[in-house]
Amino acid sequence: MDLIIGGAYQGKRAYAKEKYALTDAQIASCTERGDLPLGARCIDHLELYTLRCVKDGVNATEVFRAHAKEWENSVLICEDIFCGVVPMGAEMRAWREVTGELCAYLSREAVHVTRMFCGLAQVLK
């Protein structure tokens, strides 16, 4: 598994498409309502899946741990939501916590971790 992290609009998806020669059909985007699209070659917007988990009281990292075989060869993309002021709303605070915990776990499991900045890739691992 390779993890791509970066702020909004930094070119994460475009980089994944080019680097791994992916078509749009191979990239499954999480949503605030849907299930985790396990088995996809590339899963985008993990931060929307974690938002759903917060709303539903599900432990996102445990879900990933339980299904490790299904994403171990995937490219996972998550937005960096960690640098702002602590949000006023409890749900948004929990969202940052849960997303951060998941990214830390995925970062340990990943073969490569890449951070996108202004469309440029920075290899972190």
């Binding site: 970066g6 702020g7 937005e79 960096d80 939501i81 960690f82 640098c83 702002g84 002021v85 949000p87």
Partner: peptide, 9 residues
């Protein structure tokens, strides 16, 4: 300016 890495909506 880098304005892209927070949890605000």
């Amino acid at each position: 300016d880098y304005l892209y890495a927070d949890a605000a909506r």
